[in-house]
Amino acid sequence: MNNGVAVYVLISIGVAFDLVGAIGLIRLPDVYNRLQAATKCVTLGTCLILLGVVVASGWSAMGIKALLAAVFVLWTSPTGSHALARGAHIAGVPLWAGSVVDKYKEDTGR
C-alpha cells in the first residue's frame, strides 16, 4: 500500500515536470531558452517516472532495466543538448532580442 502511494507520487511529479517542459517548449522565445526548459524538465520528469517504475517493480528485470534507462537518459541528454546549442550558435541562429549579453559571440566571432 505504502509502496503504491510512493509510485503514484513519483510518477505524478514526473508527469507534471514533463508537461511543464512541453509548455516551456511552446512559450519561450528562442532556441536556447527552449533547450533550457524543454530538455532539462523533460529529462528530470522522465527520470522520476522511471524511478517510479523501479519502486513499483522492485528488484526484478523490469526495475533494473528502468534504472538503466534512467541512467542512459541522464548521461546522454546533457551531451545532446550541449551539442544542439553549439550547433545552433555556429549555424548562426540569433539570440532572443531581450537577451542581455553574448560573450561567446564577442570572443569567437561566430
Binding site: 514533463d18 517548449l25 517516472i49 517504475v53 513499483a56 537518459v73
Partner: peptide
C-alpha cells in the same frame, strides 16, 4: 529540440506502459 524532447518523453511513456 522538439524531436529530442519527443524522444525523451517516449521513454517515459514506455515506462508507464511497462507498469
Amino acid at each position: 529540440v522538439g524531436i529530442d524532447t519527443i524522444g525523451v518523453m517516449v521513454v517515459g511513456i514506455c515506462g508507464i506502459f511497462g507498469i
